[in-house]
Design a protein around this nucleic acid. Structure first.
Lengths: 186, 186
DNA sequence: GACTTATGAATGAAAG
DNA sequence: CTTTCATTCATAAGTC
């Protein structure tokens, strides 16, 4: 009972002892129960859980073993990415002739100041259920907080500072001038 | 002139040339020296370099390998965002009994011995030094600029759905409350 | 026990 | 600034 509840899941997907006696290894190894729940959530349509959702999921999954928020975050990130990747591979192999290729999701980027990306990836419909309700709940208490994001400042104010950086001498370079980031000295 | 100094340094960050003779791979892969300098600048307090600063940094870093302005721009963008993201995602869930930090990386590659750029969970209070001067060049400096960051909102906008997940009963757990991922009523 | 696969973690590049 | 996507790195687990 001990290791099934506490550690970094020495038993991955049912069998085998992974990490050794303790959870010394730094890599999270989800238990089969955790994977089941995560997969279920994914199949239910959840793709990119928000911070709060991640928090809740993580808290719940912690029942089955050690887990952190970032594990949940990465899991969904990877799962989604690899599903998409797989789908893309299928495209490449199945029908190399033509057509069916370009349905760009309409995200032709607006070239920013530095670079542009010309990724034209074929994207399947990828039905994603965003609203899912396994338990009907009638209330609406949760007074929604205001979502105003007043981020301000911290932009170019630091230009008024002197920023000089001396390159490290650790690296064995013959010579390298110091990095002077002065922009405006008063 | 081998590509270990000039090219895009494809693999293993700074050692070995992955990409082949040229840099056909499109993604910048910073050398360990470049990372060190960038990290140092960041640790020194630089967060959002201006265009001019980016230019200077990029020029200097080009000594260690191919680099563009946008690489520097993105690097700071990402580094800052992830520092913050990490801090936000850190407040942890289940079992804070142990370290939560240990990472097994950095055994093979020689980069990790320089900086801690991707350390997990460094509870740094995000000191942002705006004025940094390693080389005294003039008398007046220290014109400290105020930096107040008022960003609010935990940012849940697309999650106008109710997401409740009932935990499977297959596993033999005594009791487990259903996972309620409500975020906002419809 | 080396090789392959699966997948957790990280990060460059953008999009929003 | 915040979030997402694509690619890569690293490693536990599976395979022979």
């Amino acid at each position: 009972m001990d290791e099934s509840l506490s550690g970094f899941s020495m038993k991955a997907r049912g069998v085998g002892g992974g990490c050794g006696g303790g959870n010394k290894c730094g890599r999270w190894n989800p238990t089969s129960e955790q994977v089941k729940v995560l997969t279920d959530l994914f199949r239910s349509g959840l793709r990119t859980p928000s911070t709060d959702q991640i928090q809740k999921i993580s808290t719940q999954l912690s029942f089955y073993g050690k887990i952190e928020n970032k594990n949940v975050f990465y899991w969904f990130q990877n799962h989604k990415a690899r599903e998409r990747q797989k789908r893309r591979r299928v495209y490449n192999v199945s029908d190399p002739t033509d057509d069916e290729i370009i349905h760009c999701k309409g995200k032709i980027s607006s070239i920013k100041q530095f670079g542009e990306r010309n990724q034209v990836v074929s994207e399947e419909p990828e039905r994603v259920i965003e609203t899912l309700q396994l338990f009907p709940l009638n209330s609406f208490e949760e007074s929604e907080s205001e979502k105003l994001r007043l981020y301000a400042s911290e932009y170019n104010k630091e230009n008024a500072s002197t920023f000089i950086y001396s390159f490290g001498r650790e690296v064995d370079n013959p010579y390298h001038p110091p990095l002077d980031l002065r922009l405006s000295f008063v």
